[in-house]
Design a protein around this nucleic acid. Structure first.
Lengths: 135, 135, 135, 135
DNA sequence: GTGGTCTAGACCACT
DNA sequence: GTGGTCTAGACCACG
């Protein structure tokens, strides 16, 4: 059962929040290649969001090759999803790995008035949250 | 002389880019409490953007308590800006405005096959890189 | 149906008049937490003002925590609006209740050359105007 | 010695704050007809404001007949200031520039959970406090 | 000179 | 449909 946590007032588009979280389930192995995802209608009802929002999230994920929609059958994790992730791994490495994102994070922290120690704490929290509490 | 670098095609609103960079100047100490900022018109001209866009950036920064606008006189770094930053430091440790970004970072790391220790190292490098280079 | 009365020649900015009146509707309980407010375009049309003026009123009200804007969905009375009003109540009490404002009012009256009886009359009018269910 | 208290960040124009307070001194009898007021230059220096701001305050007060400027001699409380105040008393009872302020006061009271009777009491206290304590 | 407000209208993003 | 951003330009108010 796919459980997504949405925050309409976060400033991040709902369809984006959905995409990110579905991707994470896949990366963490909670769902794998060929697994079926909830129907648009079901997910929309469950999350109390507009069906078109689900459509947008699924469409974007399909464009990236993460999922595949089969007419009349449903939505599934793409059978070659691991290839996609693999290719992405290489792509990120080519650009220089996570350095840029980490730098960005630290800058954002400074802009918010946090000091380095606070940044480390936030990162630790994220690590704990992801590695420890997965479904 | 405040120099801002704008990227109109980044997807990030121009006023947001301005806010972030001005905040950054303040956090890094390039400008301090009471210092005057460029006038709306001057900054608009310099950056080749519409004055109302500058107004929006300044207005939002004023709402956060970072700057202070004085009708007929100009725009200034708020005299109690350090109090504001201090309060943020305390307040945002619990609320975690950076949580999502940090989570994103860790997930990207997972996609790359890195472990938590490697993430910490990357973040440390970023901190050193940024904090070590100030005058 | 939210009915706002604007006076363009009052010297008070239109967006400020809108803010004040919407706030009053909420304080008086005419609209409550979660209720939807008129769309920007609808309100602009109804009041014959520019949509950006409505945007400004709504933006400021959002900053105070009174309302909540949801991209693509609409504008709503903030679900925790009562918390905001509560905090404001406390704030006013901390500063010394209404004494300061009342004193200010009487002083202003003196500056205008009014005597105490006239002040009482003005206050009575305000009470009648608000409590008496104005059109 | 005229002592004015200015708050540049109150939102109220500085020249207006000056006008209000000078008027208040006169209404309360601290200074009377024919008394000399500080020179523009002296007042500007004392209050650390732009001389043109003092000029504006004095000019506006002169237009209302509250003060008179005598070329080369200085600025004085108008010798017929009491006539002006008298005329106002008669004329402005109906117009009431205080309506909005009174309305604000009543609304704040509502936010505090006070009823109309309590508002009247607060206003009475303010009147007593001001009228009772004059020289 | 400064900032404050408002208009008219375009184009984009989200639900 | 909704809100979000940006432009161009006018006019007003303040110091």
């Amino acid at each position: 059962m796919l459980h997504l946590q949405l925050d309409p007032s976060s400033g991040i588009p709902i369809y984006r929040q959905m995409m990110d979280q579905i991707q994470r389930y896949i990366v963490l192995g909670a769902i794998g290649p060929g697994d079926q995802l909830p129907s648009i209608r079901a997910l929309a009802e469950q999350l109390r969001v507009n069906p078109t929002t689900v459509v947008k999230a699924y469409t974007e994920l399909e464009h990236t090759g993460i999922i595949e929609r089969q007419h009349g059958r449903g939505v599934f994790v793409h059978r070659q999803v691991n290839d996609v992730l693999e290719r992405r791994r290489d792509g990120l490495n080519a650009v220089g790995g996570l350095d840029q994102e980490a730098t960005q994070l630290v800058f954002r922290a400074l802009e918010l008035g946090l000091d380095p120690t606070a940044v480390r704490a936030v990162v630790e929290d994220a690590i704990k949250h992801i590695m420890g509490g997965d479904g």
